[in-house]
Amino acid sequence: MKNNLLIAMRMTLVTTLLFGLIYPLAVTGLAQLLFPGQANGELIQKGGKLIGSRLLGQAFSAPGYFRSRPSFAGTGYDGGSSGGSNLGPTNKILISRVQVEVARLKAENPGVPVPVDLVTASGSGLDPHITPAAAEFQVPRVARERRASEADIRAVVTRHSLGRQFGFLGEPRVNVLELNLDLDAAYPSSR
């Protein structure tokens, strides 16, 4: 038994060294070598300054931008504090929050049902995507704000739409940050 205790201590140290340090550092080295962009978060620079990550959503409140989904990461899309609302399906706070959002969205695009992802918060609070339905819902407003035709805006949306991976994995989606950056370049708005 005493022998096993000694082995336990030595085994902890040896394996910690092997799997707690050598392994992750080796993977880091290899990753930085093979996939430097991905390994560092697919960061987007603009004019020499870091403006975000392709993989992380951002909040957009100006009417000329496509809006992201509601977020409960920190004060909203805080990459240092990911997380969802964790509101239960029968929680009055959730219901009324959704109702407020629905009312606001209905006002800007009356008569069209509101796609569910636009009024629900993602689990990460950092969801970079909205559904094509949510993008389509916002096209009239963005076109209006940017004084472009809806067809033009739709074309930009299509450029940033992703289908299912390998044709069947996941769901179709639109990257909001990239879409908005592209819009700023193609149809600078008056804000």
């Binding site: 969802g84 964790n86 629900t120 689990g123 995507h129 559904t131 769901e171």
Partner: peptide
Amino acid sequence: LQAGGNMEGKEV
């Protein structure tokens, strides 16, 4: 255009 359903807490 969308998966629909209960999207609260889920990723697109």
